[in-house]
């Protein structure tokens, strides 16, 4: 997905000379296309994320679109105050892109696991939070991000993510995409983990449970209508996110459901509120932490049957 992201951004930059990339020495093998094509609009500030974000803000304040780009937590947590005070408070047109959300770089250790990003970015006023599920969403999300006037956080996948959507999609910021319909329960996913929720829905179907699947590619602004419709039209709601269970997609959906009342059975599938120090591949870690499609399906069924 990261290669696709860079290709699409490069294509857009061909037609839009206001797009700048401001990096902090990360992006080997991916960013060279932009750097070579637009040397005047490409800056590597060195290993200095605070300056990267401040410089990007200054670039944006002058009427441009500045894209910061790095992996995992580097362009968010190290420079969070620059994102808050400089970018968001000024509504600066800065796009913060991370490669490898969640456990994508799992075996590299806790420093490289972006597992609180959705919660933290979502808490910032005026920030749009995007986490595309597959290539189709990723491509559409780059266009939407650039078209949006204001700060955007873009959680990009890493590589070889399977296609969630079989055909063309209608991607709009703040509007969930229904991947399949169902009347028994709703699985709501965000980011690349949504594919596993989709697979879980297939398993549930073989067990006679019809699951609706929503791709909530925009965590903020959240598609409240889609959440409320799920609560109204199906009997249980399950969120699935490659993120701490606190404050991310599950938290956002819980806020909507709690305020709406109705008491629909609800479950958050996410990472435990602890650091992941087990060593293993991305897929191994996901399976270990309850994201195997069979495990998601079993959790959903327990919720539906009141056995949770």
């Amino acid at each position: 997905m990261r290669s696709l992201f860079n290709k699409v951004l490069l294509d857009i930059a061909e037609k839009n000379d206001r797009i700048y990339m401001v990096l902090a020495d990360i992006g080997y093998g991916e960013i060279e296309g932009f750097a070579e094509r637009f040397p005047d609009r490409f800056f590597n500030v060195g290993v200095a994320e605070q300056n990267m974000t401040g410089v990007a803000c200054g670039v944006a304040m002058e009427g441009n679109i500045a894209v910061t780009y790095s992996i995992a937590n580097f362009p968010t947590l190290r420079c969070l105050e620059q994102i808050r005070n400089d970018v968001c408070y000024h509504k600066a047109n800065v796009k913060i892109v991370i490669i490898g959300g969640g456990l994508a770089y799992g075996a590299l250790g806790v420093s490289h696991q972006a597992t609180e990003d959705l919660a933290i970015m979502r808490a910032l006023p005026d920030m749009v939070v995007l986490a595309p599920a597959d290539f189709a969403e990723a491509e559409a999300a780059v266009h939407a991000m650039i078209a949006h006037d204001g700060p955007v956080y873009y959680r990009c996948g890493y590589k070889k993510e399977p296609a969630l959507h079989g055909g063309p999609i209608d991607f709009r910021i703040g509007r969930a995409i229904q991947v399949r319909d169902g009347s028994d329960l709703t699985l709501i996913g965000t980011g690349t983990i949504t594919y596993r929720a989709f697979e879980a829905a297939g398993i549930l179907e073989s067990q006679g449970v019809k699951a609706r699947v929503l791709s909530m590619h925009t965590v903020k602004p959240l598609d409240r209508e889609a959440v409320l419709a799920a609560a109204r039209e199906t009997r249980a709601v399950v969120t699935v996110e490659e993120h701490n269970v606190l404050g991310g997609l599950g938290g956002a959906v819980a806020e909507v459901l709690a305020e709406a009342g109705g008491g629909v059975p609800f479950l958050r599938v996410g990472l435990p509120d602890s650091y992941i120090h087990l060593v293993g591949s991305h897929n191994w870690l996901l399976d270990h932490y309850g994201f195997a499609p069979q495990a998601i399906a079993a959790s959903a069924r327990r919720l539906l049957e009141g056995r949770q």
């Binding site: 605070q50 300056n51 401040g54 200054g58 670039v59 304040m61 500045a66 620059q82 400089d86």
Partner: peptide, 21 residues
């Protein structure tokens, strides 16, 4: 021109504006 209040924010933004100029 710009809101500050936490130290260390002004010069990076100024550098970004200098870059554009």
């Amino acid at each position: 021109e710009f809101s500050t209040g936490s130290l260390g924010h002004g010069l990076p933004v100024a550098a970004g504006m200098a870059l554009v100029a």
